[in-house]
Amino acid sequence: MAEKAIEVTDLTIAYRDKPVLWDVDMDVPSGTLMAIVGPNGAGKTTLIKSILGLVKPAAGQVLVLGKPYNEQRHLVGYVPQRGSVDWDFPTSVLDVVMMGRYGALGWLKRPGPSERAAALEALEKLGIRHLAERQISQLSGGQQQRVFLARALVQDAQLYVMDEPFQGVDATTERAIVTLLQELRSAGKTVVVVHHDLQTVPEYFDWVTMLNVRRIASGPVQEVFTEQNLRLTYGGKVAFLSAAGNGKSENL
């Protein structure tokens, strides 16, 4: 765990004059499964987009595996929010998964048999190989999410960044995703996940960052996922929180 997968220092991001992230520091040690939690508008998505160089910071810096993102992008896999694309786009599941290899292919080269094989293997891992030739508009929400995860898997990365992979998926898919995340961690990968369901944080993740424009807390779940930090993160909505924040954290 000596190496840091992500190192965010003094990160400030603003849309026009409204700060979305304010002076955020966050370290993600290699080989951890980290959840990023916080209320709507807390800047969770903005934080991971800035890790991926998709949003330019007003101040501060982000290092990925010790270097700026644009030197390390071949080591990073990205799972955007499922709702960020048009699923009526005329293409097949296999085609979408192969897009994960486009970065490694670079310009001009077309995906060939080895990309196809990698895509099929990833689909197999997510249990949807039989959907390979399916048109993407015919997928359920859970299947769409698995397709996006398969696309990230073929990126064959060291660090995976996922934006709400559990959003609106069925229980079976949720189990499948959790299993996948744990497999990735066992293989020595680092995974950072924007997460919404506070109840499952202690069960699914070992590290957590709690965010509400400012960073409230960041560290191992059993140390920082406390009721007090939850209260700080979510403000007035304490009633909802004391129910959600129980479990291990309350005893600490």
Binding site: L54, N70, R73, Y78, F89, V96, M99, Y102, G103
Partner: peptide, 12 residues
């Protein structure tokens, strides 16, 4: 056309 954000993350 399909996923510009993912394209940007790949460095295109």
């Amino acid at each position: 056309t399909f996923d510009p954000e993912f394209a940007a993350s790949l460095g295109f």
